[in-house]
Nucleic acid binder design. Structure first.
Lengths: 130, 130
DNA sequence: CAATCTATGTGCAATCTGCATATAGGTGCA
DNA sequence: TGCACCTATATGCAGATTGCACATAGATTG
């Protein structure tokens, strides 16, 4: 199906958008920050291996999620000036963030089980019914 | 953590809700209807094996999704009167619905891959960083 | 006849997310 | 110098999804 870039007008038969797991940016950003202190623009690139290569994350959403995580105490930030280009807000994960990430991982493992249950049922059903 | 039933006041550290996959009701209902013609109240029960046992789907959402699927041409409905209790709206899947379900399955398989990529990365990272 | 179960539905509000846009420092180049 | 472009962060707005509260109504049971 050709894609002219315009939003889908007729609401009919719309397939789910690329972002299918709610708030999936959260665990991805937290895992990246667990590896290294980083700023938003950098994380935007780092997300690519997590399924955001074909469907890049929106930068405004990334920045918003990071500020949200900071409000929650999962990360802290500090301004880095003096480097080349505009000032960057450098994020670092906290202990609270570590626990939050672990909770997310458990949560996603459960989601994975649910997904498998569905796909297995689908496959066996389709095998029987042609 | 005790749960007094009230909504979470302090917005802090909220973990993702039980419904983590966007519009997951859609493929589940379609798969159930691929097996058998059924009405909403019945489908509400049939959803349980798909991960809705611990977190039952909201009935209003189920009815709304079914009407939405009908607008899309994925299902058709007819009233069944004469049985015991109130009239029931019986849903049946269409050929368009079959294709839509197949598309959903492909979509969820991709989601599954993304999920695995994350969990594998998480596990190996945590193994290294104790 | 009141409570309860079956069955379908509307209204509303919170949440999440993508698009458009604003702001601003820095670099390359004609 | 002027201009385009890249880096970097952020706000406003609107559409989509979803859960909760509530409305409606037929049928059954004590």
């Amino acid at each position: 199906m050709p894609d002219d870039g315009r939003p889908c007008r007729h609401r009919q038969l719309r397939h789910p958008q690329p972002r299918r797991i709610n708030r999936f940016l959260e665990p991805c950003l937290m895992l990246l920050l667990h590896c290294n202190e980083a700023h938003g623009y950098e994380l935007l690139e780092g997300l690519k291996p997590y399924g955001f290569a074909r469907n890049p994350a929106d930068s405004s959403t990334v920045y918003r999620v990071l500020r949200h995580l900071e409000e929650q105490g999962c990360v802290t930030s500090r301004w880095e000036t003096g480097g080349a280009g505009p000032a960057r807000r450098l994020y670092r994960i906290t202990e609270e963030g570590d626990r939050f990430l672990a909770g997310w991982a458990d949560n996603l493992r459960e989601t994975d089980r649910v997904l498998h249950r569905f796909l297995r049922t689908y496959d066996t059903h389709m095998e029987i019914h042609r």
